[in-house]
Design a protein around this nucleic acid. Structure first.
Length: 886
DNA sequence: GTTGTCACG
DNA sequence: ACGTACGTGACAACC
């Protein structure tokens, strides 16, 4: 086997590692206050690379300083770059130490960049018959790819890489690796700060390179080009193009004074590495190496606990007026999870047990149900539901660590108490993964001491973090959000989950058998049309049939092959009857697998109901999500799918399903937040908002009629505005030209000027503060808002403007739900709230309560908050979820 | 475990 | 020229 050579672009990897973890920069420091994120990331990358590639020789190349032969020939080279932050430069010496201790050589050369060292050694490697892997964060190095040299460019983070071989370059760009140099010379490079030829970007550059082979080729054949602006620029800027080519070219013959033979890789020097990790406080790596001495392994403050038994229950009555409580349910689904044990207590006394029956004793029961005893918990909803299964109530909940933490930062939230505590710099508790293991090996420890200690540590973590998190909520002006919205909502959601929704299994089964028949018919037809049998559900096999065997045109590719998504198939449908059948097959098999089989699986046999779980601490915007099963995406748009809703029925005879939904809530929020006069007027006048938008942006006179197409387009524009519009995206959606879409958008901004201001101001706010917020001060941090990478930054900008809108709408319905539950109880109604679907609330109710609800629910919902435009609510009811009528 | 697809607001 | 609308979850296939 050929010898293997590993070449790492040290500086670019360090930069990548540093910026990949930039949003948690302060979490990565050692005890001396040294920042370590880049060192840590570099180490992750090394492990990852060496896990897959076993080099005989290895070198990390570094830049030797700012001045290089390139800056000498072109003063602006790499000019305009921001100064490297101190937090990064202080790490560089340690990266070199890590490299050395890991058994890799490192090298730098005055006047040359790391690229040139790598380029030179890669050539030598090629000539000496090595297989070479180059690891870098800089796409420019892909020009070095060859038959025996692969270039791995970090993609996201530092361990996710894209491997460039000559074939891969060809596939992506249609040119050879060395032609990348010509392409870059023409298009320029804004980060290296050389200009290229005016008006030539990637597309044009590739076209020219394909046609003429190289920059030199272009100028030899410049006469072949038709007269055009582009040609003028090329002729005028020939000097520039040629100079840029030199700048873009990585040297293959830098005057290095090392040889391949000097680069032998001998593996890490374990002793030194251990010292190094200790110096850096890299505990996870030390643990992996199994070198933490026992007492250091669990570097957790000692804790005392008492096992609760039938004989010492009086200890519970002595706990005072505040305590932590934690019931351990090892499965994520707390409706069905076993109970592994529990802990309750306070700083002085931690009482633990494996026996859930003890919770039912009168002492514990009383402690749990006493609302004067304040409870601190982790995931209150899970605890309420779990205890409810034991016939117990939990009252007086004050602090929910999970919920509070989510409000503080939706990004680094975790369902693992230990992990979450670590995020908040509290380390006297281990993660569940550490104590229970993961995957199939996950289990509750048999040894009492291990398990009980972990339980007690968890309860202590909750207690210790309470005041700190409350303080942070206060600083963010989020205490009302926590106290008046999220915590009361947890109780409402718990009730809804416990109530569950009644589902008629027989209805589903009947539908299922019909679908099975239809599926078999369509399948036969597809096989006939294809001329062979294959797995229609496999996109890979389907792609081969459609695009190779039947030779249909390829419209879109995914990163692994041909795309066969709906929009693609719809374009192909006129060309081959098989396509229509495949669309049918897809639709029906989706219904069959996800909705018929899927729902049947989760009906509880005890009550014929489905009990979903609402995740209250997951979304980035403040919406809820629903799992096990997801009841927020039951089909409604297509008639075939909609029938699934016939199986959702009331749980008592003589009851009905009642549902109310907000009309255009997000656009109303937009009108409120932006204060746009025209948008507010349209809502105040109670108009069909898409129609009035159409009237405005298409400049219709009052007597002119709005045709359907105009309304459809205006509706798409309205959605687009909420989502962070682009002309391209709008054009795709409504099948118009990009320039037409552009005009629509411009016209919209002219008619609704404050919307335009809002978008601008919100992005500015995010840039300055790093987050955006909703009407209730719900926050979303946007670490990418100042990213260099265009697409990441653009994405952050779109979310910056969308989140306050989507999130405020979520706030509104949450407030409505709390009020609604209050009203139901106040009026002693039997009605139960069952489901929330983002802008809709679904209830089951005795028929005689329907008239009450028809007034009460809309009243509560439209008065949930006071906006500068009215909220509108529509209600429907019927015998099943399918049959709802006004 | 990741990817592609498709269900919802 | 860039790369392409926001937020979710479940399933089947494939690695």
């Amino acid at each position: 086997m050929a010898k293997q050579l590993l070449l790492i672009d040290g500086n670019s990897i360090v930069f990548r590692a540093f910026f990949a973890m930039h949003n948690q920069i302060d979490k990565f420091t050692n005890k001396d206050g040294l920042h370590t994120a880049a060192i840590y990331g570099f180490k992750l990358m090394l492990d990852h690379v060496l896990g897959n590639f076993h080099p005989d020789a290895a070198l990390v190349a570094f830049d030797a300083g700012k001045v290089t032969f390139r800056t000498k020939m072109y003063a602006d080279y790499k000019g305009g770059r921001n100064k490297t932050p101190e937090e990064l430069t202080e790490q560089l010496p340690y990266v070199r130490e890590l490299v050395r201790d890991s058994g890799l050589h490192s090298y730098e050369l005055k006047d040359y960049e790391a690229d040139d060292i790598i380029g030179t050694l890669a050539r030598e490697g090629d000539e000496a018959g090595y297989e070479t892997l180059i690891v870098t964060g800089d796409r420019d190095l892909t020009q070095l790819a060859s038959d025996h040299t692969t270039v791995a460019v970090t993609h996201k983070g530092v361990t996710d890489t894209e491997h460039y071989t000559p074939e891969h370059v060809k596939e992506k760009l249609g040119i050879t690796p060395t032609q990348i140099i010509d392409m870059k010379a023409l298009m320029g490079d804004s980060s290296d700060n050389y200009p290229g030829v005016t008006k030539i970007g990637e597309k044009t550059a590739i076209k020219l390179v394909k046609q003429f082979g190289s920059v030199e080729g272009i100028y030899e054949n410049i006469d072949q080009l038709k007269k055009s602006k582009m040609k003028e620029h090329l002729v005028e800027e020939e000097e520039v193009a040629r100079q840029c080519k030199t700048l873009a070219t990585i040297l293959r013959d830098a005057p290095i004074d090392i040889k391949l033979a000097d680069l032998k890789y001998n593996g890490p020097q374990t002793e030194k590495l251990i010292d190094f990790y200790q110096k850096m406080d890299f505990r996870s790596f030390l643990k992996k190496m199994n070198v933490l001495p026992d007492e250091q392994k669990v570097e957790i403050a000692p804790i005392k606990y008492t096992e609760l038994t039938a004989d010492n229950l009086e200890l519970v009555t002595q706990l005072g007026d505040r305590g932590s409580f934690y019931l351990e349910m090892p499965d994520a689904n707390y409706h069905t999870s076993p109970f592994a044990g529990f802990v309750l207590g306070n700083g002085e006394q931690w009482l633990v047990s494996r026996d859930p029956e003890l919770l039912k004793t009168k002492q514990v029961q009383k402690w749990l149900a006493d609302s004067d005893i304040k409870k601190d918990v982790f995931n209150a909803k899970a605890q309420i539901v779990g205890l409810n299964r034991l016939g117990l109530e939990l009252k007086g909940i004050d602090f929910d660590l999970l919920l509070a933490s989510y409000l503080l930062n939706t990004n680094d939230n975790s369902n693992d108490l230990g992990k979450l505590a670590h995020e908040h710099e509290y380390t006297d508790v281990q993660t569940d993964e550490e104590v229970y293991g993961k995957g199939v090996k996950r289990s509750i420890p048999d040894e009492d001491e291990t398990f009980f200690k972990h339980l007690a540590n968890k309860a202590r973590a909750i207690e210790k973090l309470r005041s700190q998190l409350f303080k942070q909520l206060d600083e963010n002006e989020q205490l009302p959000l926590y106290t008046d919205i999220e915590l009361p909502l947890t109780h409402v959601l718990a009730k809804m989950e416990i109530t569950g929704v009644h589902v008629n299994a027989q209805t589903l089964k009947n539908m299922g058998s019909k679908l099975t028949e239809r599926l078999a018919e369509i399948k036969e037809q597809i096989y006939q049309e294809a001329g062979e049998e294959f797995n229609i559900n496999s996109t890979k096999q389907l792609g081969q049939i459609l695009f190779e065997k039947l030779k249909l045109p390829v419209i879109k590719k995914t990163k692994t092959g041909y795309s066969t998504a709906v929009d693609v198939l719809e374009k192909l449908a006129p060309q081959a009857p098989i396509v229509e059948n495949i669309l049918q097959y897809r639709q029906i098999s989706k219904l069959q697998s996800t909705y018929i089989k899927g729902l049947l699986k989760v009906i509880h046999s005890s009550d014929q109901k489905i009990h979903t779980r609402y995740l209250q601490t997951l979304t980035q915007t403040g919406r809820l999500s629903s799992v096990d099963p997801n009841l927020q995406n039951i089909p409604v748009r297509l008639p075939e799918g909609r029938r699934i809703r016939r199986a959702f029925v009331p749980s008592h005879d003589g009851w009905q399903i009642f549902s109310s939904d907000y009309s255009q809530v997000e656009l109303r929020v937009l009108a409120h937040i932006t204060g746009d006069h025209n948008l507010q007027e349209d809502f105040k006048n109670g108009e069909d908002i898409h129609a009035s938008t159409a009237r405005r942006i298409f400049h219709l006179k009052p007597e002119e009629k709005i045709d359907r197409n105009m309304r459809r387009r205006a509706k798409a524009v309205n959605f687009g505005i909420v989502y962070g519009i682009s002309d391209y995206g709008l054009a795709q959606r409504i099948h118009v030209s990009r320039s037409q879409a552009h005009e629509f958008i411009q016209s919209y901004f002219k008619e609704f000027p404050k919307v335009k201001d809002y978008i601008h101001d919100t992005i500015e706010f995010a840039r300055e503060h790093g987050y955006v917020e909703t009407i209730t001060h719900r926050r979303r941090y946007l670490p990418d808002i100042n990213a260099k990478n265009f697409s990441r930054r653009s994405f952050a900008e779109r979310t910056a403007m969308n989140t306050p809108i989507q999130g405020s709408a979520a706030d509104i319905i949450k407030i409505a739900m709390i009020k609604m539950q209050d009203e139901l109880e106040k009026h002693h109604l039997k009605t139960k709230m069952l489901l929330q679907i983002h802008d809709e609330l679904v209830f089951e109710a005795p028929k005689e309560e329907i008239p009450v609800l028809s007034k009460l629910v809309p009243d509560v919902m439209d008065s949930a908050v006071k906006l500068s435009v009215p909220l509108k609510v529509d209600s429907k009811y019927g015998d099943t979820w399918y049959d709802l009528k006004k």
